[in-house]
Design a protein around this nucleic acid. Structure first.
Length: 285
DNA sequence: ACAGGATCCTGGGGGC
DNA sequence: TGCCCCCAGGATCCTG
């Protein structure tokens, strides 16, 4: 499940092979993604489109092309984006192929579950989609104060707030759990109960977890790969995610799994104390 | 208004 | 051994 570190890894991997390359054609696979590719814009590739740069914003990948056009990708759950030899056998679930020049190479977009997105947008459309209006700041730019302000006005739990892309962009299930553990905050705590210093802890935890995950190319659980066969390494450093039943690396208590905000959530019941239930007013016990 | 639930999609894993 | 069911979850739409 590609989140910020995995998407960052894919973007960094794409940059070298796309340096100085142009896209000269696009072809569609037999099945559509959830958002159909805009075939009425295929004319864009009747002239070669040099790649000006590849960027990440949250979990989105933007490939800027000459002439004010952009390829925009989201890997969803199982998306894979890479540059291959055109001769290489077409992998199953390949939905889009972009022919590159020079060299006999292609960009291929695969996605087993088809939760992903691939689109061709103008600069204006692309920037509107990735702007601060739609998407919160990158976690590295998120201040503790901003996080606290968002949280204290919300009756949602911390886990849901962290995964809300309009609060901060790029956090999903894995790094939400890992950051909450690092900050010693229970995932089901309500935003309104977050204290200022806890917001600071959470923000710092999130940034340090993400930086470390980027250093080791993200997490490969089952389906995340980059380049030809690249795998992440952060799954070897998970402290709570997918660690149900194992001892907490900090205190030894047994890691538990819970459904929070509809998502499977992993935490240490001792390091991340459960929110105290509010005493019922006017009644004893 | 806002929060939580259903939905999409497929392969893999668990259970019988 | 084989089959069936259920689970995983990002974003969006729906419902209460």
């Amino acid at each position: 499940m590609p989140e910020l570190p995995e998407v960052e890894t894919v973007v960094r991997t794409l940059r070298r092979p796309l340096q100085g390359a142009s896209i000269v054609g696009v072809r569609l696979g037999p099945r559509q993604l959830r958002r159909p590719w805009p075939v009425d814009r295929n004319f864009v590739f009747t002239t070669p489109r040099p790649v000006l740069g590849v960027y990440r914003r949250g979990k989105w990948i933007r490939c800027r092309l000459r002439g004010g056009w952009n390829l925009l990708f989201h890997l969803g759950m199982t998306g894979r984006l890479r540059v291959t030899d055109a001769e290489a056998a077409l992998e199953p679930h390949t939905h889009l192929v972009f022919d590159l020049s020079p060299g006999n190479r292609q960009i291929r977009f695969q996605d087993i579950r088809r939760f992903g997105v691939a689109d061709l947008l103008t600069d204006e459309e692309c920037e509107a989609l990735l702007s601060g209006e739609q998407l919160g700041p990158e976690p590295f730019d998120l201040t503790a104060e901003q996080l606290w302000q968002k949280a204290r006005g919300s009756k949602r739990c911390l886990k849901a707030i962290l995964m809300d892309q309009s609060v901060t962009a790029g956090v999903g299930n894995i790094y939400a759990d890992e950051a909450l553990f690092e900050a010693r905050l229970h995932p089901a705590r309500l935003g309104i109960t977050l204290r200022r210093e806890e917001a600071q802890r959470l923000r710092n935890a999130l940034v340090s977890v993400l930086h470390r995950a980027i250093e080791v190319n993200g997490s490969t659980i089952r389906t995340f790969f980059f380049g030809e066969d690249g795998r992440g390494g952060y799954q070897n450093e998970f402290r709570v995610y997918h660690q149900t039943g194992k001892p907490c690396p900090r205190c030894g208590a047994v890691i538990r799994r819970l459904l929070v905000a509809g998502r499977s959530t992993h935490f240490c019941p001792r390091c991340q104390p459960a929110p105290r239930r509010r005493a019922r007013t006017g009644s004893h016990r």
